[in-house]
Amino acid sequence: MYLTVESLEKRYGHHDPSVSDLSFSLSQGELLGILGPSGCGKTTTLRMISGLVPITSGKIFVAGREVSNLPTYRRNMGVMFQSYALFPHLTIAENIAFGLEMRKLSRAEIGRRVADALAMVQLKAVGERKPRELSGGQQQRVALARALVIEPDILLLDEPLSNLDAKLRDDMRNEIRDIQKRLQMTTVFVTHDQTEAMAICDRIVVMNRGRLEQIGTPLEIYEKPATPMVADFVGRINRLAGTWRTDGALMLGDAVVRGNASGTAGTDAVVMVRPHRITMLAADETPAAGPGRNRLAGVVRDVTFVGDTLQYKVEAAGGLVAVEKTTTSAGNRFNPGDAVSLVWRFDDTLTFPGEVAG
Rank of each mutant, 00 (worst) to 15 (best):
I150C: 05
T195L: 12
A147V: 04
V149M: 09
Q214K: 08
V206P: 00
G210L: 04
V190R: 09
Q184I: 04
A147S: 12
R132G: 08
T186Q: 02
R173C: 03
R177N: 15
M185W: 00
D193G: 11
D153R: 09
L168I: 14
S162T: 11
Q184M: 14
L161M: 14
E175P: 14
D170E: 15
V206E: 02
L134M: 11
L155S: 07
E213P: 00
M172W: 15
A197H: 10
V190W: 13
V142S: 14
V188Y: 12
P160M: 03
L155M: 09
N174F: 11
E196Q: 07
F189Y: 15
E151N: 11
D165I: 12
L183S: 01
P131T: 05
I154F: 06
P152E: 08
I200D: 07
F189L: 02
D178G: 08
N208D: 14
P152D: 07
I176Y: 14
A143Y: 01
D178A: 15
R141P: 00
Q138G: 06
R132Q: 10
L134D: 11
N208S: 12
I221M: 14
V188D: 13
D171V: 09
S162Q: 08
L156A: 06
L212S: 00
D153W: 01
D202L: 14
R146I: 05
T191P: 07
N208W: 03
I221N: 13
D202F: 07
Q184S: 15
P218D: 11
C201S: 15
R211K: 14
G210Q: 02
R173W: 04
K181L: 15
T217F: 00
R203L: 09
A197E: 11
M198A: 08
G137E: 06
R132F: 05
I176C: 13
R129G: 08
L168Y: 06
N163T: 13
D171T: 11
A197I: 12
E175M: 09
K167I: 00
I200M: 10
E213V: 05
E151C: 03
I179C: 08
C201I: 10
L183I: 05
M185T: 02
L134H: 10
S162V: 12
A143V: 04
I176G: 12
I215Y: 03
L134R: 10
Q140M: 03
L156R: 10
S135E: 07
L144V: 09
M185P: 01
G137W: 06
R173T: 02
H192F: 13
Q180C: 02
M198Y: 04
R173I: 03
V205S: 04
N174K: 10
E159Q: 03
G136K: 01
Q140F: 10
R129D: 06
